[in-house]
Amino acid sequence: MGAPALSSVGVAPARAGVTPMAYWPLVWRRLRRDRAAVAGLALVAILALLALAAPWLAPYDPAEQFRDGLTPAGQPLPSTLPEGSLRFLLGTDAVGRDLFSRLLHGARVSLTVGVLANLLTVAIGTLLGATAGYWGGWVETLLMRVTDMMMAFPTLLLAMALVAILKPSMGIIIAVIGLVYWTWIARVIYGQVLILREREFVTAARALGTPRRRILLAHILPHLLPTVIVWGTLGIATNVMLEASLSYLGIGVQPPVPSWGGMIQQGQAYYRTAPWLVVAPGVAIMLTVLAFNLLGDGLRDALDPIQRGRD
């Protein structure tokens, strides 16, 4: 068992020793070679562009409720009107608004909430989980008990209390998601660190007298990267959905601002009569998740400190 231990020790310092100039171009080169990752990157870029350009691309004001936007019986209009015109590209929603315009504008809210809230959860979760797992002792006890408490606390009550105290806004939504869901990542990371800290390359580094903080940052964190990326990419979809369930409680973005989750929320009862109300934002969410996943996988491979030896 001596050889693997040596090689492990060999990898980590080597990674730390590589100058940023040499490391990041390498990552970029490997990312570019990965066709799936490039597709993911392109898709992310397109989505971001669509969101940014929404005011210019959208044919209508996303909040405008058209008099002729509903059937006389009050049902949403499908995309193909009887006259065959394409007045509403994707049809209208339950209030008679243009679904396509709302989809474009919704991208702004949903992408922002999805990405930012996720950054927040991942950052808090990784930091606390890794610290607790590696530091041990009373730090571990304290941090993990706080995590337990946060995890055991009912989100619904917390969200209701927060919305009653604060005015709902995008910032609040991001904060609520971030504050509530970091516990998950913290636990996962904690579990991994418990194992990592007993791995040969860490014990060896410790034996060599490397400072604790340095071991955590240089040796343990890189090994957590795959997990962090998985959470970072899948979490985006979950957050978009969470925003929807928060809007159910009244803490979501306030009407008439569109969000994909909120659109699904409003549209799901129409699953038989106007299925496009859910399908359109659902596909948008799926494309977003797909994009970030492809990119995430590519990044994971490109950044992988162990893999690098194979190049």
Binding site: A63, E64, Q65, A94, V95, S247, Y248, L249, G250, P255, P256, Q266, A269
Partner: peptide, 14 residues
Amino acid sequence: AVDPQPKLCESFQQ
């Protein structure tokens, strides 16, 4: 925040 009330309020808004 229970359907259909928010959408009625959106109509008032307009």
